[in-house]
């Protein structure tokens, strides 16, 4: 996680499903500060939880001890928008494989979560490579 300015909240969450609620609550709180509507926040909560669920389900193999399975969550308030980064230090993957999955539609293997993230945000970028972790960057603009 790179250093951020004073309008950014950074959290380190254990990579366990019981902490998904914490990610959603943080998204709600910062979303309100960013001026997002309730509907915007509902959308972003799902997108953030999908990214975190992907980390929990796919980022870590047996070589990574449980104590090192972490989700790095960064929530930044911008001008009429909010940027969320979900980062892990896990096994990574080839983003081109994700593109192929997306071409199969929302029902494509592993595509449903990313499909929802894409539909529920205004911008989605995935940075990853095998062996070097993953960073998902999402932007949600206020619709008021």
């Amino acid at each position: 996680m790179s250093p951020k300015d004073a309008s950014t909240v950074e959290l380190v969450l254990p990579g366990k499903a019981e902490f998904l609620l914490v990610a959603r609550l943080a998204t709600s709180g910062v979303g309100l500060r960013a001026g997002l509507t309730v509907d915007d926040i509902d959308d972003l909560k799902v997108a953030v939880a999908e990214a975190c669920t992907n980390v929990i389900n796919h980022a870590f193999d047996d070589s990574i001890p449980e104590s090192e399975r972490r989700i790095l969550l960064s929530l930044s308030i911008g001008k009429n928008e909010m940027t969320v980064e979900v980062e892990d230090e896990g096994v990574g993957f080839d983003p081109n494989a994700l593109e192929r999955s997306q071409r199969d539609g929302l029902d494509g293997q592993g595509g449903l979560g990313f499909g929802l993230m894409r539909e529920l945000t205004d911008s989605l970028r995935v940075e990853s490579a095998p062996g070097s972790g993953t960073r998902v960057i999402m932007v949600k603009r206020a619709t008021r």
């Binding site: 509907d39 509902d42 959308d43 539609g105 929302l106 029902d107 499909g115 929802l116």
Partner: peptide
């Protein structure tokens, strides 16, 4: 609920 119905619609 509107937010949930949106998820059903988007996901097909």
């Amino acid at each position: 609920r509107k937010n949930l119905l949106r998820i059903f619609q988007i996901s097909g």
